[in-house]
Amino acid sequence: MAVEVRIPTILRNLTGEQKAVTAEGGTLSAVIDDLEANHPGIKDRLVEAGPGDGVGLRRFVNVYVNDEDVRFIGGLDAEVTDGDQVVVLPAVAGG
């Protein structure tokens, strides 16, 4: 179950400057764990503690699976299938 993950500029120091990497997993959570195994440090930039004992996607990180914002399709539990495209984009936001 390989998917392509598009990496934003600010995280490319963790992927050897690659703009896209492949990862495996049936859910977004599994994909992120697989990314972490190959690119240590990346998971902490994508998820944070909570709610409760679990972890959730960071508030100001957008992740899309096949152009759908994962917040609308299950968050970290979003299903991912072979050939899907995952895009990570830090929010452009401020005060």
Partner: peptide, 11 residues
């Protein structure tokens, strides 16, 4: 006091 790009428009 805050701005944020809409996530769909941003993609």
């Amino acid at each position: 006091t805050f701005y944020e790009f809409d996530s769909t428009e941003m993609l």
